[in-house]
């Protein structure tokens, strides 16, 4: 009787071990897949950020072009402005 109970316990323990091993293997595989998946989507988002940064750089080029002295000179002339003469330049300070 005692011998039979002992072997049943061992069998149960082994079966449980195998089962838990299988479950853990599955969990590990699932985690790896999730990791890859998350990493993949993070990469996609990073690519998106880079695209936006590249787009911003292009907009900055346009802004720099619009702020170039040549462009400002053309715009100023269109608004009827002209180069200041001695006595016409004031520096704003303290306001």
């Amino acid at each position: 009787m005692n011998k039979g109970r002992g072997s049943t316990g061992w069998l149960l323990a082994i079966a449980l071990g195998i089962l838990s091993g299988m479950v853990m293997s599955l969990v590990m595989v699932w985690c790896n897949i999730e990791r890859m998946d998350t990493n993949y989507f993070i990469n996609i988002l990073q690519v998106d950020v880079r695209d936006r940064q590249a787009h911003r750089a292009k907009l900055e080029v346009e802004r720099e072009h619009l702020l170039s002295p040549y462009e400002l000179g053309r715009k100023a002339a269109a608004f009827g402005m002209r180069q200041p003469r001695p006595g016409q330049v004031r520096r704003m300070d303290g306001q």
Binding site: G87, V89, R90, R91, M92, D93, G94, Q95
Partner: peptide, 10 residues
């Protein structure tokens, strides 16, 4: 103290 407001250049 510093004079506030507009100042002629130079």
């Amino acid at each position: 103290r510093r004079t506030r407001g507009l100042k002629p250049a130079g």
